[in-house]
Write a protein that binds this DNA or RNA. Structure first.
Lengths: 195, 195
DNA sequence: GTCTATAACGGGATAGAC
DNA sequence: GTCTATCCCGTTATAGAC
């Protein structure tokens, strides 16, 4: 798997992320990717080794680099009890609204990995664990009596669902859709106004 | 598309529902279905006409018959302001816990239909409309100041997300997972105890 | 109504020339 | 490093025998 030209590799990975997002991993052919980047199947396979490995590269170099990095590292060193959870989620939604391709990639793979043999299955299992630990972070500013785990869990699940609807009808405004359901997750009588 | 034996057709449709749920529509081959029901590809195609049409049959005769029927028709003729929304959702979750195959079918197709050419796309677009109207039903008993649309929307999205996690790790208890996030959607200080 | 056989095509991956 | 050519497997669908 030699590749002297890193820029070329990056182009391949980005295009692959888009195609995997468009139709999922299984339904995307190496031929279509090869056409998109101006290579033959054989040439493409020289770069990436195999289709399985290509997906691994995409998740590490494209998806993680842009999206997942935010999740874990972001508010980790904030002072205890200072970070607004609704605000944090709003930020994620706002970011996602700007990268529909990556949201689509995430959404497609998230359900494709229900298949135990899917090459990205481990990746999504790990992500679930990471999400659980996110609630344990003491940085959040939480009203009395609120269950952080339940709230973060519900909010993340709802976000995934909203995004599916958004992706199916691309004319809509993701941020607006999120604001519409916010009062259900963070009622003002409990959370006060969202900053 | 002639088929004299309705029982045989039913067996085909049910097996198809299971396989489509297992791997999605695109990744499921007619060969595997033919093997599962003890037919050849050619014999199978005689029954169902085409793969596209098979999915249509499955959604109508298997999925609608069991799942979707509940959604729209159920509480339609209940008296105004009497039906518990949390209770209604609990019932759905409890039912879904007993039919993982159909939940899986729904989940797989729900994201596969992000592809505009997917044969079940229209079906899922229609379902979204139906869900929106569900909130307009006057039967719900809602605490003052609560946004029904937002709550029902958030709850349904969260349910879809929970189910994905549940399907990925089948050892878990869906009803328990739902109960865990319920306080985030229906806080006691607003909704009171859930009956 | 179901079979065998085959058409017509596309998939991922490999070998070897240049 | 990229190509052509090939392998082998799979797919949906059709034709025609029984």
């Amino acid at each position: 798997m030699p590749h002297r030209d890193p820029e070329r590799l990056s182009q391949i990975e980005c295009t692959a992320a888009e195609l995997f997002g468009r139709s999922g991993y299984y339904a995307t052919s190496l031929q279509s990717l090869a056409d998109a980047v101006g290579l033959t199947k054989a040439g493409l396979l020289h770069y990436v080794g195999s289709k399985d490995n290509l997906l691994t590269l995409v998740m590490r170099d494209v998806y993680d680099a842009d999206a997942m990095a935010k999740l874990g590292a972001d508010g980790n060193d904030q002072p205890v009890g200072t970070v607004s959870l609704p605000g944090y989620l709003r930020d994620i939604v706002a970011q996602n609204a700007e990268r529909p391709h990556l949201v689509r990639l995430f959404t497609m793979l998230n359900t494709e990995t229900l298949n135990p043999d899917h090459p990205a299955r481990q990746y999504f299992q790990d992500r679930e664990r990471l999400l659980e630990h996110l609630a344990d972070n003491p940085c959040w500013r939480i009203p009395e009596g609120v269950d952080v785990h339940a709230t973060l869990n519900a909010a993340m699940m709802a976000m995934d669902g909203i995004q599916i609807k958004w992706l199916r009808e691309p004319g809509r405004d993701l941020v607006a859709m999120w604001k519409q359901i916010e009062p259900a997750l963070f009622p003002e009588t409990i959370w006060g106004p969202i900053d």
